[in-house]
């Protein structure tokens, strides 16, 4: 089965902007469930209290893909995430997340052709400082003919 060709015009186009509020409760719940034990992640009275570095992985934009993006079928899976940490996240920070498609590429695996779509969310704090970049690799598998 031939791979579906995706127009590379989609790469780099910003398609969503969302806001998220960081809460102390949210940081604590995330940190504890991941097994963090360092006080800077688990004790709000710590002078450097902050969210664990992968905290922004939990955020999802309002749209996963741009409007009018080609329909690749329902089959697919989450292939992984990369988090780049640019600054600390503190309680009561307001994050603005800008979403775009960072890359699209194709591979063929045991289960057939796969299209990898890299959904990038760039997070900025209330001062406009970049704090995190999350690349989410979504895989879509074209429906069998």
């Amino acid at each position: 089965m031939a791979l579906i060709s995706i127009d590379r015009k989609w790469i780099g186009q910003e398609f969503d902007v969302a806001e998220f509020k960081v809460s102390e409760k949210g940081i604590l719940a995330f940190a504890r469930a991941c097994g963090e034990t360092e006080p800077r992640f688990t004790d709000p009275s710590h002078p450097d209290f902050q969210a664990p570095p992968t905290f922004t992985s939990k955020y999802v934009s309002r749209r996963i893909l741009p409007e009018a993006f080609p329909d690749l079928g329902a089959r697919g899976f989450d292939a992984g995430k990369t988090v780049e940490v640019l600054g600390p996240l503190r309680p009561n920070d307001t994050l603005t997340a800008r979403s775009k498609i960072a890359d699209i590429y194709e591979k063929t695996g045991r289960s057939g052709p796969m299209i990898f779509i890299v959904h990038r969310m760039e997070f900025f704090n209330q001062d406009g400082q970049p704090v995190s970049i999350v690349d989410w690799r979504l895989v879509r598998q074209p429906d069998p003919e």
């Binding site: 097994g35 963090e36 360092e38 664990p52 570095p53 992968t54 990369t82 988090v83 780049e84 940490v85």
Partner: peptide, 18 residues
């Protein structure tokens, strides 16, 4: 990330690809 912090308390994870 938690495992890395247990190994090196106080370290800064700059990037984590999974």
């Amino acid at each position: 990330a938690a495992m890395i912090h247990k190994w090196a308390p106080g370290c800064q994870i700059r990037k984590l690809d999974t």
